[in-house]
Design a protein around this nucleic acid. Structure first.
Lengths: 105, 105
DNA sequence: TAAACATGCAGTTTTTTAACTGCATGTCAA
DNA sequence: TTGACATGCAGTTAAAAAACTGCATGTTTA
């Protein structure tokens, strides 16, 4: 779980995921096309995304194709985000408490 | 959006959110109780959580009560996670492509 | 087979983040 | 009003992450 959050913390990596969502199978060279980034930096970002299982790859000859894997993101939703969403009503109550305290002082 | 992801990237901060989910209104001192962390470190973590709007606070005399705000997390789900979840079927197709290529080589 | 290509890996520098030290401010309670 | 308490803020140090440099490996194609 920590690897996923860490991987998603970087805007560059989130943009990479976005591009792979639109264009599955991009190579490393295609991923950095139009950016200022060096190939080596992008490569390390990809490694981090792979370690988090957010990206899976397939070698085709000398090219490495990259694909988005949405499963870990769904896992975050299921195991983590939902926990907070379910307590929305409760949380609103908490915030109301806050406001009550505020208005009474 | 970046502030939220960055804030969630740190395990210590995610634990803080968990504690505030269970026990709304904890003070800073109560938050660090039972941990090795110094008060000042925790204070910076709280600042980061506040900047991301994941935590709201209310002063009560000399005590500062902390409350979880689930809205940014729900926003991530709505504006970001959903985008990837909706493409689940598509993504499975992509992965199938990968496997086909793999088995044919 | 040799040149161009696509990528990987190791090592260094730079930047960012986290933790700590020390002092300041405001609140409560005797 | 004074001492203990709860927290804030500025500055330093330590650790982690990101970007870059240079070289190596395997693949395609002329």
């Amino acid at each position: 779980m920590d690897l996923i959050f860490k991987a998603l913390a970087d805007a560059t990596r989130r943009e990479m995921l976005d591009r792979l969502l639109d264009q599955p199978g991009l190579t490393l060279g295609e991923l950095i096309a139009g950016t200022e980034m060096r190939r080596q930096s992008a490569s390390k970002h990809v490694q981090i995304l792979e370690a988090a299982n957010l990206v899976v790859t397939e070698w085709q000859g000398r090219e490495k194709k990259h694909f988005l894997n949405p499963v870990p993101i769904q896992e975050i939703t299921r195991r983590w985000v939902d926990k907070y969403s379910e307590t929305r009503a409760e949380a609103v109550l908490n915030l109301r408490q806050v406001l009550e305290v505020r208005s009474s002082t």
